[in-house]
């Protein structure tokens, strides 16, 4: 027997980011999932926000540590630090 009859759209959207971030658990997570599966409006809204978060990650994660920095870490941290400690 369920304690309550799921969520309405406002309640559902309140959990939007925690749900998309994978931070919801237990009954709340399944309530949100069930609601989205049955509600076209919320489904569209959640998918839009998911696209936004993916876009953000893709754009901001393109940079890597530059090669000269890598070499500096090797030379000045890994090699020189040892000799200093001795």
């Amino acid at each position: 027997m369920k304690k309550h009859e799921g969520l309405n759209c406002d309640d559902c959207v309140e959990h939007l980011y925690t749900y998309l971030d994978g931070e919801l658990t237990g009954e709340t997570e399944s309530d949100v999932r069930v609601h989205i599966e049955g509600c076209g409006d919320c489904f569209g809204h959640f998918e839009f926000e998911r696209t936004f978060l993916r876009f953000l990650e893709a754009r901001a994660k393109a940079q890597c540590a530059p090669e000269p920095l890598r070499r500096r870490i090797f030379k000045e941290v890994l090699l020189d630090n040892g000799s200093e400690a001795e």
Partner: peptide, 24 residues
């Protein structure tokens, strides 16, 4: 953002035009 563009661009296609530097 969804309220502004959700009707017109539900898949967020305009994101594709925004470059890395602008996001950063």
């Amino acid at each position: 953002l969804f309220d502004e563009v959700g009707d017109r661009d539900p898949e967020g296609r305009f994101f594709d035009q925004i470059v890395d530097d602008e996001v950063l």
